[in-house]
Amino acid sequence: MEVLGIWIAAFLTLCIFSFLYRDNPFYRFAEHLFIGLSVGYSIVVTIHQGFIPLAWEPLSEGVNALQSELTSEGTPETKEALSGLFKIIPIGIGLLFFARLSPRHTWLIRYPIAILIGFTAGAAIPNVLQASIFEQTYGTLTPFAAMHAGSLSTGDIVGAILITIGLICTLVYFFFSVEHQGPVGWLSKVGIAFLMIGFGAAFGNTVMGRVALLIHRVGFLINDWLGSIF
């Protein structure tokens, strides 16, 4: 069975690699298969690992507990399971997303979207400000306190100064309320240089990441697939 799996994986890998020569039916077959499989798999996993344990099971346990309570067969466990009935509220709100399917009731979709945006924004704004603005500003300025105390090496001092110059110049580049001429123009040009270095580093790392994917597949073809033949 494992050998069959290796052969299928090798065939599909070669199908995808065939695109390097030119577009062809083998490539399109493998591409469509991959998309279909990954979407299908994700839906099944989401139902089994999300919908059933978080929504269906507590709700059905709550309904069963309610029936037991109504027939006077209630126990402390059934009383506890009654809390599952509250799941009807988030499930009901979630189901409103399907109102999109009925033109007459499309307006109902605004409510789950409003709740989702409200929750996400409420959770994100204070935490993002703290993690991405305050902590980063603190991290940029802290080395200068260490520099003043004389506990920073020459390399770290150069690094701290470069980071600060890069930060100020890049922010100036994105400040469009003042015309980029004279000193402001020079600072924004330095900012562009820092941005370019940043993009270059990101692009180089991206190439490295893509090469890693190729190496992984070639390693699979040589060691696992050809290794199983010879």
């Binding site: 993690a131 980063q136 980071i163 580093a201 790392n205 991206t206 490295m208 890693a212």
Partner: peptide, 25 residues
């Protein structure tokens, strides 16, 4: 992290928001 997002991680390392990290291969 994979190579694509290595550059994004260094600011968090400098501020100790990351204890450490492994860049790609």
């Amino acid at each position: 992290v994979t190579g694509v997002i290595i550059a994004q991680m260094y600011p968090y390392l400098q501020t100790n928001q990351l204890v450490g990290f492994m860049p790609g291969y």
